[in-house]
């Protein structure tokens, strides 16, 4: 890549496609898209070297709105698609986009194992604490008293704590962002993408249609008061005791990322059949 090429691709607009988002006016995900394109521009990555992988839901629509290679698969399986891609194409920058339903409910098992496997990728979950695309059902992060047609009077269930789960499962980088702060979010995404291994970035992204109360998040979020730690015990205590609106990089681990050792190309496939020969 020449210097001219790099300059050409360094504007956020270069990472945005012409496809018009289907999101509601005021949706937090518009800002997340903005953070994506700003982060990619800051990193100076050629758009064709980035793959944005997603599942199903409002947030999972994001790949087609970028000018990168995109993959919009089935509900809940984005991390598995991304794992297969990154292991076979380590040259690519792989960013996975998900939501609280896609990522924590139907895709919950893959979340655990992606953290544990620690393949070098960045997992962005746009958490609005509701299923938006199917019009307002409770998700794993929804408060217990949130009244919906599917859960009259609320679920009565404790919300899932994704950051704690990520830490316990072995994620190598854990951050919380707020979509309403796209520049800060872009900065954190840059750090997450640069950090080797599995980086998990939870972005609080309000659903203005089914959770108008989330407009309040703007006044609730605040920067994390303490510096990033690489000590999982300390990170666990902080994450479990904070108010859920602590914004910043909360944990930065030092685990070695997973990567298969590729053998040299065998001169001849005939070698493989040796064990059949009598």
């Amino acid at each position: 890549m020449s210097v001219v090429d790099l300059q050409r691709t360094c504007k956020p607009a270069d990472y945005k496609s012409a496809v018009k988002p289907i999101w509601c006016p005021g949706c937090g995900d518009y800002h997340v898209l903005m953070s994506f394109t700003r982060a990619f521009a800051q990193l100076g990555l050629p758009p064709e070297q980035i793959a944005v992988i997603s599942g199903i839901g409002c947030s999972s629509r994001i790949p087609a709105y970028t000018n990168c290679y995109g993959f919009h698969g089935v509900h809940g399986r984005s991390l598995a698609v991304a794992a297969g891609l990154k292991v076979t194409r380590p040259d690519l920058t792989v960013v996975v986009a998900s939501g609280d339903g896609d990522g924590y409910s139907i895709g919950g098992n893959h979340f655990l194992h992606a953290c544990r496997r620690n393949i070098d990728m960045t997992y962005v979950v746009m958490d609005n604490r509701v299923y938006g695309m199917t019009k307002g059902q409770p998700s794993p992060t929804t408060e217990p008293d949130f009244d919906t047609a599917l859960s009259p009077g609320g679920t009565g269930l404790s919300p899932f704590h994704p950051l704690v789960i990520a830490l316990a499962s072995g994620a190598n980088f854990i951050a919380r962002c707020f979509s309403g702060e796209p520049n800060e979010t872009a900065d954190i995404l840059v750090e997450a993408i640069r950090h080797p291994g599995f980086s998990f970035v939870e972005i609080l992204s309000p659903c203005v249609t089914f959770r108008p109360d989330e407009k309040e998040w703007k006044s609730l979020v605040h920067p994390a008061p303490v510096a990033t730690t690489n000590d999982p015990a300390r990170a666990a205590r902080r994450i479990m005791t904070d108010d859920g609106f602590n914004i910043g990089i909360l944990y930065r681990g030092e685990r070695r990322p997973y990567g298969p050792e590729f053998g040299a190309q065998a001169a001849d496939l005939a070698e493989l059949e040796c064990e059949f020969e009598q």
Partner: peptide, 26 residues
């Protein structure tokens, strides 16, 4: 690995099939 490839153990069959779709997409 002898022919420049790799194998990944999946957490379940849902992951296995989506992993191969991701690899093939690449």
């Amino acid at each position: 690995p002898k022919v420049g490839g790799s194998l990944l153990q999946a957490e379940d069959e849902l992951a296995a099939i989506n992993m191969i779709i991701g690899a093939s997409f690449g």
